[in-house]
């Protein structure tokens, strides 16, 4: 006799790491690293009209130590690079990074002496968002992609947490 017959729908069986991932993906704490115009789009994304809180990521913290989702919005130049790296290093594991906009992803049209040609030269990136600037829907889409990624990491990795 299967477990589900014994408990007759009153109990759901799952894996611990999947429950943890389910909690994580629905309560992301974003840290916006906004250096230029793309940051304005993030303001639109978090406020009521587009409302990022529909996806559980509305609590914006301005300390990297309290966040698990770094959203880089804007042009990163060489002088910013060590600061961004330090921010990333200060975030606790597990952490995810969205590179929003052409500038953060590739340097955009700033093909010059002072701009880093994509933040992936400094830190690892999970999701790139195209656009100059990306529309708020695109940033929301990136959050959904991060959620998918958290889910699939839990399903497909061998062991995320130590056994309890």
């Amino acid at each position: 006799m299967a477990l589900k017959d014994i408990f007759a729908g009153a109990v759901v069986t799952t894996k611990l790491k999947e429950v943890v991932a389910w909690g994580r993906k629905n309560s992301l704490w974003p840290m916006p690293y906004a250096t230029a115009c793309c940051g304005i789009e993030f303001m639109g994304t978090v406020s009521s009209y587009f409302d990022i809180s529909r996806f559980g990521a509305e609590l914006v913290r301005f300390s990297p130590r309290q966040c698990d989702l770094l959203i880089v919005l804007g042009t990163i130049n060489y002088k910013q690079a060590p600061i961004l790296k330090k921010f990333y290093d200060q975030m606790c594991e597990p952490k995810w990074v969205i590179s929003a906009g052409a500038c953060a992803s590739s340097g955009g049209f700033y093909n010059n002496y002072s701009v880093v040609q994509g933040i992936d030269e400094i830190i690892p990136v999970d999701v790139y968002v195209p656009g100059c600037p990306p529309a708020p829907e695109a940033i929301l889409h990136a959050v959904l992609k991060i959620q998918e990624k958290i889910d699939s990491e839990a399903r497909n990795t061998v062991e995320l947490l130590p056994a309890v």
């Binding site: 002088k79 010059n112 002496y113 880093v116 400094i122």
Partner: peptide
């Protein structure tokens, strides 16, 4: 930073070494 970027012979596609926090 190496070179002087507003000199007209500074190569446009020249990239510098990215500084890291400890430096």
């Amino acid at each position: 930073f190496e070179g002087h970027p507003l000199r007209k012979d500074y190569p446009i596609e020249k990239r510098q070494k990215i500084p890291f926090p400890q430096e």
